[in-house]
């Protein structure tokens, strides 16, 4: 890797201050599993002058429950979330999503904050400098999205504009279905953003110099069935082709609450609100599940090579509902 200066931030405020000071010339590092790839590939328009380490901030790696809320510090590692009895007992969909990420080694390093903030996986965007690259594209602020006319098999089927990459985060999908909030801190203070609002087509919702501090997840009814299904080309390592998270509550066979989120289909996790509404008050059976699945994908507009993702998404929604 090309050199950079390195600063161990000791508090969140110090990190924010450093970001402000470096005016876009510094990047944050938590687990490093995504950032180092970017630095090695040198595909971003600007190589950072400074890397600010967040792991040196103590006390931001907690997983705790308090007042009906699960709180996860931004630096909590995915492996800690997987192992947390708190998460696996009450927020199983999140434990399953975290467990589906990459490999044991990656989960031992990657943090939940990093998992939410990781950059997109588009192979045009990430095309490495050293093999005749890098490639310019809409996301880098120059030219069209190359996936539209290129190989877009893993790209978005809904809600995109300009850039058709999908949100690669698995935990985001689980957090979206759990109605979680991302709490961020910045020079202007702190604010909370719903996970579903955190992602956008060209960037996430972080304003300049803001940092994710924690995630808060409201308690889930104990009778709810939580499911995370991830379709990948291979079981471990791969990013989702499509994923679905669901939280479904039934009383005597009748659905009283349904929450469904789709992953890897759009710039962020997508709540299938109409499908959720459709299920409420209904008796869940094959046909109902299939209808809800149709509804969940009603807004899909595939590109030239990714219509198959619609079929997979429908299947996963159906299977998640019927679980």
């Amino acid at each position: 890797m090309r050199s950079f200066t390195h600063i161990n931030a000791r508090t969140l405020d110090e990190a924010i201050e450093l970001l402000r000071k470096y005016r876009g010339r510094a990047v944050l590092n938590a687990g490093g599993t995504d950032l180092l790839s970017a630095l090695k590939g040198e595909y971003l328009s600007r190589y950072p002058e400074t890397v600010i380490n967040l792991k040196s901030i103590s006390g931001l790696d907690y997983v705790s429950e308090d007042g009906g809320l699960l709180r996860i510090g931004a630096l909590a590692k995915l492996s800690d979330i997987v192992r947390s009895p708190l998460v696996s007992s009450g927020y199983r969909v999140l434990a399953e999503a975290a467990r589906s990420v990459a490999s044991p080694q990656i989960r031992n390093a990657a943090t939940i904050g990093g998992n939410l903030c990781q950059d997109i996986r588009c192979w045009y965007y990430r095309y490495p400098r050293h093999i005749g690259g890098p490639v310019q594209c809409a996301r880098k602020g120059s030219g069209p999205c190359l996936a539209v006319r290129g190989d877009n098999r893993y790209h978005a089927i809904m809600n995109s504009r300009k850039c058709f990459a999908v949100c690669p985060s698995d935990t985001a999908v689980a957090l979206a279905v759990l109605d979680a909030q991302v709490h961020v801190s910045g020079p202007e203070g702190d604010r909370a953003i719903a996970v579903t609002d955190f992602f956008g087509p060209l960037a996430n919702a972080l304003r300049s110099n803001e940092i994710v501090r924690k995630i808060e997840v409201p308690k889930v009814s104990v009778s709810a069935v939580q499911t995370f299904l991830k379709f990948t080309v291979r079981e471990p390592i791969d990013f989702a082709v499509v994923s679905v998270a669901s939280v479904i509550t039934r009383e005597e066979g009748v659905c009283t609450d349904a929450r469904i989120a789709l992953g890897a289909v759009a710039p962020g996790p997508v709540r299938a609100s109409k499908a959720e509404e459709m299920l409420k008050g209904e008796r869940i059976d094959e046909e109902m599940a299939a209808q809800a699945a149709e509804q969940a994908l009603a807004g899909a507009r595939p590109l030239s090579k990714n219509a198959y993702k619609i079929e997979i998404a429908k299947t996963l929604v159906k299977r998640a509902i019927l679980r």
Binding site: G32, S37, A109
Partner: peptide, 8 residues
């Protein structure tokens, strides 16, 4: 277990 290629 961690990946030494992805660790500073």
């Amino acid at each position: 277990a961690v990946l030494s290629c992805m660790t500073l």
